[in-house]
Write a protein that binds this DNA or RNA. Structure first.
Lengths: 218, 218
DNA sequence: GTCTATATGGCGATAGAC
DNA sequence: GTCTATCGCCATATAGAC
């Protein structure tokens, strides 16, 4: 689109929309950053505004309240944090490969989002109802899921394992070193960041091996 | 001590002291209760006062600030949460027995204090410096601890295992189902409290078996 | 030591100019 | 849409009577 001075212009609505999106995105990015580190209770609207390079009033203009802004962040984060397990099960890989793939991609995710575990743990304990959405949208039928995992397990010559305990084990082993970072880093490695990172990078291999040894028959 | 009417009485100072202790203990109990559920950020001095059956002003009379009161609670809780691992190693039990004993007593502790994991995780992430004390007083020399565990492991004909990873694994498997209670209970058991409790009571056995299979050679 | 009343500050939220 | 200024509340903390 070109005006009478031959300058390219865009329809006003589009310009508005782009500006809006830009600001809204800046807010969402900033809120994501702050909420993930501090959680709902610890975060301050002022800090989010600073991080986004705007002021508090604008936050309320785009999202009516802190609670609403938080919910927007929580919903997207929660989706990311619940990998679709059925997707892993559907492929025609061996059980061992499926488990490896799941562990590897999950720890990958956590290394890119180290604050994710505590963010979710804090919120689901603060407000357990916040889980209801995800249950409906993502894990539609848990009963069915564990049934499927159970069937997959029985196809293999391994120890009898409760699917729920197995899943909890895999997630626990993956998540804990991130959630307990200060503990692991300070107490186990004398606050040596490098040593802690090294520990994390060994983790994928360790968890995979650990899980397989725990279910494989001699 | 007897007065002129032959009634037993106590010196005023002692009476004062007892009253003081009673109130102080009531405060500590109440603070323990509230802080463990809500954490430093989520707790309210009013709620602690109500729980103790006194008013807010008294809290500040006994402990100067919320922060100081919290520190008092955190210190005692942290001590409880760090079992003396060397104690378990010192006995002349087999490795398997030592591991079993540790897991069993630790999960026992968590069942009696289900809020303990999240309380500690939240606080060490909010204020990592809070760990410094415990490091000095309890886990004096981590290097030494893992050296000792490593030696113990090498005495047995098992897979080569990094003591740090093994310890993290044991704690992760024990702690996670408590820290992630809403997740496990709602998502895995359709919010069936009984089923979740049943799951927890199976946990000791599961974790023990899991650990042993993962380190035992065929 | 314990209470009521109040000061003080911070934070979420809104009003209103531009 | 964005800003400055301000309201109103709530939580920690203190003053002061008893």
């Amino acid at each position: 689109m070109v005006n009478k001075f031959n300058q390219t212009v865009k329809p006003t609505r589009l310009i508005m929309k782009e500006i809006k999106d830009k600001t809204e995105d800046k807010i969402l990015d900033a809120a994501h950053e702050v909420f993930l580190r501090k959680g709902m209770d610890g975060a301050r609207m002022q800090e989010i505004a600073d991080e986004a390079g705007i002021n508090k009033a604008l936050l309320h203009y785009y999202f009516r309240s802190k609670e609403k802004l938080f919910e927007a962040i929580f919903a997207t984060v929660l989706k990311k944090a619940f990998p679709n397990i059925l997707k892993f099960l559907a492929s025609d890989l061996t059980l061992e490969q499926k488990v490896d793939l799941f562990i590897e991609s999950y720890i990958d995710l956590l290394q890119k989002n180290p604050y994710l575990p505590m963010f979710i743990l804090k919120e689901i304990n603060r407000n357990p109802e916040s889980l209801a959405d995800i249950i409906r949208s993502k894990v539609e039928d848990p009963e069915q899921l564990f049934e499927t995992i159970g069937n997959e397990l029985r196809k293999n010559d391994i120890f009898e394992v409760d699917p729920r305990h197995l899943l909890v084990n895999i997630i626990a082993l993956s998540v804990f070193p991130f959630a307990a970072r200060p503990l692991v880093q300070q107490v186990m490695f004398g606050n040596d960041k490098k040593a802690y990172q090294q520990f994390l990078s060994e983790r994928k291999q360790v968890v995979k091996q650990f899980i397989h040894r725990s279910i494989s028959k001699p």
